[in-house]
């Protein structure tokens, strides 16, 4: 298995000095291509910081982060933007769709920033929306859709340009049980299609869906196990 994410001895310290907060304390972690990983921890455990780090939204105070073999620990804002655009598909708890844009336009956004031409963009975005079962909702705006549908748009946006990593931050946190099931099913399917999926959650029920479970607490990795209860079915 090829290494996709390699974090080496990473610390993230806020407010350096006497009242410093060590959000990440010497964390090392490797995730291979095609893995299905859940990172679980309580709030304040450092999981959000880890997620920001993995998503190249933040840089470590010390230590190294290699993504696809590329050192991304010290980059300018614009370089980080490019890496995020190329490597990572985000799925957020709050969906984070732009309210003034239609589903199709929302899905096209990362493709625009990548510089994909209009025709190709349209084709990719439509294909992605179809694959999450929203072929009939392409011209709807977010406020015309249910939470589950919005999250599916967000997933379509994340996968439209086929990034190597899907990074889902509490993807079902705002959803009812039915929608949660729907979203987990889609995420599992994407994993089966060969994508690397990382879910960050505080919900053991969600974490139990993943193949590998990493527990984080006080900024440190407490356990990193293969899920014995993992069911390889959709």
């Amino acid at each position: 298995m090829k290494k996709l994410v390699e974090i080496k001895d990473v610390c993230k310290i806020y407010n350096p000095g006497e009242n410093e907060v060590r959000a990440l304390n010497h964390v090392s972690l490797t995730i291979g291509e095609g893995e299905f990983v859940a990172i679980i921890g309580q709030s304040g455990s450092g999981k959000s910081t880890l997620m920001n780090m993995l998503g190249c939204l933040d840089t470590p105070t010390s230590g190294k982060y290699f993504l696809h073999g590329q050192d991304v620990s010290h980059m300018t804002d614009d370089e980080q933007s490019d890496v995020r655009n190329r490597e990572i598909g985000f799925i957020f708890q709050g969906f984070n769709l732009i309210p003034s844009l239609t589903a199709l336009e929302n899905v096209e956004l990362p493709l625009i920033y990548r510089g994909v031409g209009k025709k190709e963009r349209d084709r990719l975005a439509r294909a992605a929306l179809k694959s999450v079962g929203l072929a009939k909702r392409m011209t709807h705006k977010p406020n015309e859709m249910s939470g589950g549908q919005q999250q599916r748009v967000a997933i379509a946006r994340a996968i439209a340009q086929a990034p190597p990593i899907l990074l889902a931050d509490e993807p079902t946190g705002n959803l009812d049980t039915a929608s949660t099931k729907e979203i987990i099913t889609i995420i599992k399917r994407l994993y089966h299609e060969g994508r690397t999926v990382i879910i960050i959650t505080h919900d053991p029920g969600i974490a139990a869906q993943a193949k590998r479970i990493i527990t984080i607490s006080d900024g440190m990795i407490k356990s990193d196990i293969i899920n014995p209860e993992y069911k390889d079915e959709i």
Binding site: G55, L57, D77, D78, S81, D82, R84, N85, R86, F90, N96, L97, I98, P99, L109, P110, Y113, R114, R157
Partner: peptide, 16 residues
């Protein structure tokens, strides 16, 4: 602000 955050997370550069 939030829209700007979303755009940035999706790969928008400062210049965009």
């Amino acid at each position: 602000t939030r829209e700007i955050g979303i755009r940035k997370s999706l790969g928008a550069r400062t210049s965009s």
